[in-house]
Design a protein around this nucleic acid. Sequence first.
DNA 1: ACAGTTATTGTACATCGTCCAGATTTGCGG
DNA 2: CCGCAAATCTGGACGATGTACAATAACTGT
Lengths: 196, 196
Amino acid sequence: MTEAHPVRPGPRRTLSEQAILDAALALLAELGAERVTIRGIAARVGIAPNAVYTYFPDKAAVLRGLAEQLLGRVHDNQEGDSSSPWRDRVHALARDLRNELLAHPGSVYLLLGSSLDGRNAQAIGAALLTILTDAGLDRDAAADAAHLLNVYILGSVALETTDPATAAGQFQWGLDRLLDGLAAHAGTRRNHHGSA
Amino acid sequence: MTEAHPVRPGPRRTLSEQAILDAALALLAELGAERVTIRGIAARVGIAPNAVYTYFPDKAAVLRGLAEQLLGRVHDNQEGDSSSPWRDRVHALARDLRNELLAHPGSVYLLLGSSLDGRNAQAIGAALLTILTDAGLDRDAAADAAHLLNVYILGSVALETTDPATAAGQFQWGLDRLLDGLAAHAGTRRNHHGSA
DNA sequence: ACAGTTATTGTACATCGTCCAGATTTGCGG
DNA sequence: CCGCAAATCTGGACGATGTACAATAACTGT
């Protein structure tokens, strides 16, 4: 699994990309999203600000990596419960993702900003997709339903971040209404993207 | 309806708050969200950058006003169709809001960032609420359902902005699943926020 | 006419992302 | 073993940002 390192000349790196991402995550957790700055990261790991550009081409790339790292944690928590009913599995995944996002204020905007095409993002998407096909949705419907759930979870946390009045109960209620709609669709199982 | 103006001393204002917001909206439409800058607005209306602080206390306030202005347009388009079935009414409102947000790239993040407590925001929320009570939901359920729809619409456009692969058909499909879930709940009509 | 209040400007500061030029360190081919 | 090319890091700088401060000009009520 360790990469086949194209042994380059030049001095050895004093850090790893992971160290950069760890520092960025720490800043995100401690000081909020707008304090996640190249200069702050550099100061925290003890290098000059521009040395960060040895590891990432620009700040957007750092933020993409950070988003990926957050999704990675969710995906790790989410392993061996393929026997429970599908609604419970969706609930578990939604809960984990929501908790991870709420634990790091501002991280939602990272995910909303960097299109979800990273490895961990696709892994979570795939997990969601198998759950939904298990629920009785065909391939197209499962893809749309996965998108729908993504939208709901991310949007929900985004609004909850700026307006703390909304609570966990509201999240669960909406999720259940949503799953009701999906279950009904899995039951009827007719023309997709078609009916009036 | 014109405000009772508490005639203050000092020179007349060369502009109005509306002029500032119009300039901000123009910048948003033409150059994107990250180019909506105090200095840019000031240059466009022909005043010094810091003169903007006569009209708004800081940039965040300008962005809040901008978000409100966008919602105002939606609310204006949305007037006299209280006879159609409730699903059609929700569809119409969702379509208008989505179109307005897609017309101004980056405006979604404005709404997600500035908690939706402005006058126009509350007006739209109230409109949604009456539609949903017409649909047969009790007051608490209607409030949660309105929040659910807000989350879906905003989240959907946010993801669509960064990932243009998602299309209008997907939006409609998800919205219909969601409305199915709400309709089912309006039918059963039992303990709210309670069942396992 | 005077005094108080306000709008606007010029200037300045801190902070940001990022580029550029050098110095230094490493691996590889001769 | 020795230079050459490549890669890392630093110091310094540039432009852009939001915004504070002081001064000036315009206006209102006394």
